[in-house]
Write a protein that binds this DNA or RNA. Structure first.
Length: 361
DNA sequence: CCCTCGATCAC
DNA sequence: CCTCATATCGAGGG
């Protein structure tokens, strides 16, 4: 039987969470901000409600720019409160899980649901289920969301994005090609700014245009994996199953420095603190790691990474710090000034018996 | 095959 | 002026 997959996306999630706990915010523009702590307004907008977006103050733009665009509107600029959003997200995810045969959480505000069995592959029943899910989420956490219903993940993600906020878009298998063809290339998950530009240079603007290219040309231009993905996506084809997410494959933490710097002595204490946070995150899940990475974002936003494998898995903070400091020294040997600094661990083992079994001997 | 690194996407 | 976290791919060296 052909699958039916739902994609659920909470509308302007962080900002809506703030509206729910402070209803007086609903009448004005709201920007939820990540203040980076260098100047008063340094940082970026994580999420904004629609009243703010109307003025061009949306996700990802500098806070100072958002303030300029929202001058005189009575807009609110709130700092992110992840602990609160996590609680709301957990409650909403719990409700949604009960509507799925297979449930896959993606971040704080997205989920995929395979509902094939419980709908018998019937779109009328799936549409009804999607509406019930929206009602249940609203009843539980007062949050609106947008839902896509289709035969696969990719199409459902595009569909959930099609009508927002509070949307419900159903794409039946027979309607997939007609649904996708007029959409801009950016509608396809996996096509970001870079890929869109390359495709535009090839004279393409819509998904319909993309669907006219043959798979060989796409593989030649974008590599085998990405090329095949583009070819299939343009046709509404996606065989990826909905799967409960297992444990993380990596843990990382990055921060913006109080000031740009290329001096090891200035960066080291920041690095050690980041190591502590990353180590704690891994330890919370009882995971050991074998790969350690240091990540620099330079003043010009260029990225420099250095990583190394340890001799064996560890969960020692001291060992992580030793490796990270070594990597940082190496990274600073080339010219450039750091704006942001990050630490990452990977090659995880532990907990559910991941990693190389031989590492236990 | 293993490792490192940059690039890309997008939460 | 430019947040934060994770996953994946491919190139290139060994």
């Amino acid at each position: 039987m052909e699958r039916i997959v739902l994609h659920v996306d909470f509308d302007y999630f962080y900002a809506q969470c703030e509206e729910v706990r402070r209803p007086e915010l609903r009448s004005k523009p709201v920007c939820v901000c990540v203040f980076s702590g260098r100047g008063g307004d340094s940082g970026a907008v994580a999420t904004a409600n629609y009243a703010a977006r109307k003025f061009g103050a949306g996700s990802g733009i500098p806070i100072s720019l958002a303030k300029r665009r929202l001058e005189g509107t009575g807009a609110e600029f709130l700092p992110v409160d992840f602990a609160h959003y996590d609680g709301v997200s957990d409650a909403a995810m719990h409700v949604m899980r009960g509507h799925a045969d297979v449930f896959e959480r993606v971040g704080r505000d997205e989920a995929y649901l395979d509902v094939t069995a419980r709908t018998g592959g019937d779109y009328a029943r799936a549409t009804h289920l999607a509406q019930q899910l929206k009602n249940a989420v609203r009843a539980a956490v007062s949050l609106s969301c947008s839902v896509g219903v289709s035969p696969n993940r990719m199409l459902s993600k595009v569909a959930s994005d099609h009508k927002k906020p509070d949307g419900l878009t159903v794409v039946r298998p027979k309607g997939a090609a007609a649904f996708l063809a007029p959409l801009g290339l950016r509608a396809i998950p996996g096509i970001g700014g870079k890929t869109e530009k390359r495709l535009a240079a090839m004279g393409l603007a819509t998904v319909g245009d993309l669907a006219r290219l043959d798979v060989f040309a796409l593989n030649r231009e974008f590599g085998r994996r990405a090329g095949t993905h583009l070819y299939n996506a343009a046709r509404g084809i996606d065989g990826e199953p909905v799967q409960e997410r297992g444990e993380s494959l990596q843990y990382g933490r990055i921060t913006t420095l109080k000031r740009d710097s290329a001096e090891y002595e200035f960066l080291e204490p920041v690095l050690l603190e980041l190591c502590g946070q990353v180590c704690a995150a891994a330890a919370a899940d009882s995971r050991a790691f074998r790969s350690v990475g240091v990540h620099l974002v330079l003043s010009d936003m260029a990225v420099r990474t250095r990583s190394r494998m340890l001799r064996g898995p560890t969960c020692s903070l001291a060992e992580l710090q030793r490796a990270a400091c070594h990597l940082l020294r190496g990274a600073l040997e080339e010219p450039g000034t750091a704006r942001r600094l990050g630490v990452r661990v990977a090659d995880l083992s532990g907990s559910a018996g991941q990693g190389d079994i031989t590492s236990y001997f």
